[in-house]
């Protein structure tokens, strides 16, 4: 699903029970113009910055990593983690990509036993 569609759907769902989730009020709380947020929701402009996406996630009680992924972004925090050991993380992600969710959730760091 496109980022804008997803945001609009989630916001409208909340608005049904809470008028504070109108386009205008949400835009105000995350610090953008209502017209800009409207364009984002319609897909007329590219998704906003990482900071605004995280603010939207907080506002709509969504997982920021999921919203960032929908926007085609990776959080700067995760980028920092990957940059420290790029080969290892690239290898890890490639090896895990086909695994089912429950198997990925069981990935833990074992204590390495060596030669002694």
């Amino acid at each position: 699903m496109l980022f804008g569609n997803y945001i609009r759907e989630r916001r409208e769902k909340r608005k049904k029970s809470d008028p504070r989730y109108s386009l205008r009020q949400v835009a105000s709380r995350i610090g953008v113009e209502p017209a800009y947020l409207s364009k984002v929701e319609r897909g007329d402009v590219a998704p906003p910055s990482e900071a605004k996406i995280i603010a939207l996630a907080t506002e709509l009680d969504e997982d920021p990593d999921v919203l960032l992924a929908l926007a085609g972004k990776v959080s700067s925090e995760l980028q920092d983690v990957i940059r420290q050991r790029p080969e290892l993380f690239a290898q890890l992600i490639r090896e895990l990509k086909e695994l089912p969710d429950h198997a990925i959730l069981r990935v833990v760091r074992e204590i390495r036993d060596g030669d002694w």
């Binding site: 204590i111 390495r112 060596g114």
Partner: peptide, 20 residues
Amino acid sequence: RHVDDYANKIPEEWKQHGGV
């Protein structure tokens, strides 16, 4: 702590042993 996290600061034998 994992010994592997400090591989550049510990004796070579500790790396061979692994562990913590």
